[in-house]
């Protein structure tokens, strides 16, 4: 008999988790183990059937789409702006040792600061719309990209650099044809993390104060002690994040063709 493929077990595991979840939280299937009341477990952990129902209603009524769209916009804007800023500042500081020496303690301080607490300030500055969430996401993405690019510039192979110089590259050509491609590969190696961070910035920002977005939905549901809807929001966000990650992997494979892969053999 053929062994079932790995995805079979992955899906089986998921189904099992939901079944256990359902049995443990349903008021009338088994007597309460931990709580003194059969409805308590459902109150704290929700019920998978109701969670899926909430998700079903969201998508069928179309209620969720504007919220997802807002969250997606915030994520993409935060990612794009944060990456560009990180790339520019990383290149600049990587190539000007004096500036990087002067700014070093400030960068360390800003990176060490828990930047989520900037959310209230951004709300005062940019209002409750998408831009306060974008700003929060940017502060998260910026540092990841910045540190990677800075490191990337410092670690450009001196031989490749000297070779380009001997081939006649001037300073701006070195920047464009050597430093930038080299730094870009470092940006890509941090792409998964920075897209994730942009997403975190968007959702946390929405959660702390907004009128739209999946984070806002979760916040509303929590206010009404509607734990099922909170879990529904979490599930939607998780799937959404997985989809983003797929897109990133796809882009990475397209754009980093020149990088050696682990396995080079072709299989038929």
């Amino acid at each position: 008999m053929k062994k079932p493929p790995i995805w079979f077990w992955q899906i089986a595991l998921l189904v099992m988790i939901f079944i256990i979840w359902h049995i443990a939280t349903s008021p009338d299937l088994i007597p309460p183990i931990f709580f003194d009341n059969e409805y308590r477990a459902a109150f704290f952990f929700g019920e998978p059937a109701k969670i899926f129902n909430a998700i079903w209603v969201w998508f069928m009524s179309g209620e969720i789409y504007p919220h997802l769209w807002v969250t997606l916009q915030e994520t993409l804007l935060a990612f794009a702006i944060g990456t560009l800023l990180g790339l520019a500042v990383g290149l600049w500081l990587g190539l000007t040792p004096l500036a990087s020496a002067i700014l070093d303690p400030y960068i360390k301080a800003m990176n060490a600061m828990p930047r989520v607490i900037l959310a209230p300030i951004f709300m005062v500055w940019f209002g409750l719309g998408i831009w306060s969430k974008v700003a929060l996401g940017v502060t998260l993405v910026f540092f990841i990209v910045f540190f990677n690019v800075y490191q990337g510039v410092k670690e450009v192979s001196p031989v490749v650099l000297n070779n380009a110089r001997m081939l006649g590259a001037n300073a701006s050509q070195l920047l464009r044809y050597v430093y930038l491609p080299s730094a870009t590969s470092w940006v890509f190696s941090s792409l998964h993390t920075s897209v994730g961070m942009a997403f975190v910035g968007a959702v946390v920002g929405e959660y702390l104060g907004s009128a739209k977005g999946v984070g806002y939905l979760i916040h509303q549901a929590e206010g009404a002690f509607d734990i099922n809807t909170v879990f529904a929001g979490i599930l939607v966000l998780t799937v959404f994040a997985l989809l983003l990650d797929f897109v990133v992997t796809f882009a990475e494979n397209k754009l980093l063709k020149w990088r050696p892969q682990q396995a080079e053999t072709e299989t038929t």
């Binding site: 192979s157 031989v159 490749v160 000297n162 070779n163 380009a164 001997m166 491609p181 080299s182 020149w258």
Partner: peptide, 11 residues
């Protein structure tokens, strides 16, 4: 100039 180690731009 031809270098001892890898000098081609990998990208």
């Amino acid at each position: 100039y031809m270098f001892q180690s890898e000098s081609l731009m990998p990208w």
